[in-house]
Design a protein around this nucleic acid. Structure first.
Lengths: 327, 327
DNA sequence: CTGAAAGCGCTTACAG
DNA sequence: CTGAAAGCGCTTACAG
């Protein structure tokens, strides 16, 4: 059978509480005792039962990652794996494990998150998406459970980590303006998403700052599970105009556009947003630095968790820099 | 404070053990008592502490997903998110949560998996990659810990879920042969990976079955973090030959090939392997059905876990069908 | 610097 | 059909 703390204590000739203190590397314990206990631990290949530890200490060293519905476009782009890499890099340094939660609909996801929170399986949550009035976020708020959103938040009292999407949209548009183009279209993903709105605002700001009139005929929002199909369809009707360049907010959107342009044998400049180099023949993309988003997200949540232990409650808002990469 | 089982018992006027039995929906309990207890539970918003439950019952209702090193190509393609969807769809039905483990190198990943296994945080493991003599797999074997590999295994006694990659390589090659092509190149990812080897074997079998001589000058394996760059470089030297079609084992590989062909203004037929529709202008791909791989993986692990509870030990080997999709 | 005792919130035999 | 008791493997005051 697996060795327990009692077995270690017996072998080392000390009490179980002393073994605990050695594990915690308490300064109250003499070096001699520490050596003795550690020897016993390796000899017995002792590893603490984390469930027992969590039960009494009421922290778990686990954080929960909340993903959107199963069917979301989220699962189709490299944002998630890249953010996950960032999160786990830092989590590993702090000896945290990661639990992941999704579901086929909101009810199922609410059930899963309830298990995590009420069941005391995690110390905090990172929401990897953002939507208005999310009941899962409500649950975290109600229970004063440590959490953070990777993206926008409704309330000004919610901690978050995000890019400055208005600024990024501004720069993406300026990238073309500075090259001398004036006829610049804008094709975004779902209009409901704050991220689409923000990048659109940046687009408008850029035009305005160069006295280029906004032409709403050059602006489109697409949605659906296969964004590339929607944007392909829309392209047919609307790219016949006299355009020079297109700002898209997502590589999937850009994909549909490119497909149409290739077929129609039209050559336009295109920029997109992504977290890795897009596998698509476009001119540039805005790298949202997903690894860093992940890293900072973990560190911030970690801070929130320890703030709570000390009875503090601080709201953090961190901006992660983006970068335009020419291809 | 959060309600415990004692609070529920007191309010319902029963003993804690009765509350437990109601939660387990034991047939020994009268309907009247069940109603009473359930009413008390909702009234107090009771949710069991899962750490306490795991401590005594020694099962967790959590499974662990083991990912490769942080830097792996794994994180760049849609396989992982898609498999994850499959796994969590079924896991949710069985009320299982998912813990995820990766790390920047093998040592760190070994540390993380040890925590899971020794710390009794999970009931079983799914390895989302496969490599020879993996020490993490060794650890699971040594401790007789329930696990399964999504991919090939060294030993014939390891449970696994996988595609038939030899057959898939065979069919991918036949796809072109049946169209009348004879000069078919093969460009695969890392030669060390069993999956590359198997698809290569299928390629050779297909040629042989049509009496087309194998020309090793038409075969290449590429590696590196950016597969598309490696395959792009290799393409320059080797695609000058008199080719008609190319079988690639991975969309990233295909990407480099396509890039070169576009530049050189050469038009060839290309097929690739993927878990979603590739964002690339090629002719077909072999869909490995990653969602189903995930679903079956969970169900099989679930079976292994319950086998173990009953003292059984069975080795499962499940093949997931692939499908050629024309684009 | 170390130990004995109590307890975290459950579940599992045992007994009736 | 239900309860009292013991115990899972830890940690945390308390005491010395």
């Amino acid at each position: 059978m697996r060795a327990t703390i009692k077995d270690v204590a017996k072998l080392a000739g000390v009490s179980p509480s002393t073994v605990t203190r050695v594990i915690q590397n308490s300064s109250a314990i003499s070096q001699k005792t520490k050596d003795l206990v550690r020897k016993a631990m390796t000899e017995l290949n002792y590893h603490p039962n984390l469930n027992a530890r969590s039960l009494v200490s009421s922290y778990t060293q686990v954080i929960g990652l909340i993903l959107p519905d199963d069917s979301d476009v989220f699962y189709q782009n490299p944002f998630f794996p890249t953010v996950l890499r960032g999160i786990s890099q830092v989590a590993a340094d702090h000896n945290y494990a990661i639990q992941i939660s999704t579901g086929k609909n909101e009810a199922q996801r609410l059930e899963a998150i309830s298990q995590m929170v009420y069941g005391q399986r995690v110390d905090g949550l990172i929401f990897l998406y953002s939507k208005p009035d999310d009941p899962l976020v409500q649950l975290a708020i109600q229970h004063n459970f440590p959490f953070l959103i990777l993206g926008k938040a409704d309330s000004p009292f919610i901690s978050l980590v995000d890019n400055d999407n208005i600024q990024a949209g501004f720069e993406a548009t300026n990238y073309f303006i500075n090259k001398g183009y004036k006829n610049i279209a804008f094709v975004a993903g779902n209009k409901e998403l704050v991220v689409s709105q923000d990048r659109y605002l940046g687009y408008k700001n850029a035009l305005k700052s160069h006295n280029i009139p906004l032409d709403e005929n050059k602006v489109r929002f697409v949605s659906g599970f296969l964004l590339e199909d929607s944007s392909y369809k829309i392209s047919r009707k609307f790219l016949k105009q006299d355009l020079e360049a297109i700002v898209t907010t997502d590589t999937s959107v850009a994909e549909g556009v490119v497909k149409y342009l290739n077929e129609a044998n039209i050559k336009l400049q295109i920029i997109s947003f992504d977290s890795v180099k897009p596998k698509l023949d476009i001119d540039a993309y805005v790298d949202v630095h997903a690894i860093k988003l992940g890293r900072v997200a973990f560190n911030t949540l970690h801070q929130i968790i320890s703030d709570k232990k000390q009875g503090k409650q601080v709201c953090y808002r961190r901006v992660i820099p983006h970068k335009i990469i020419e291809l």
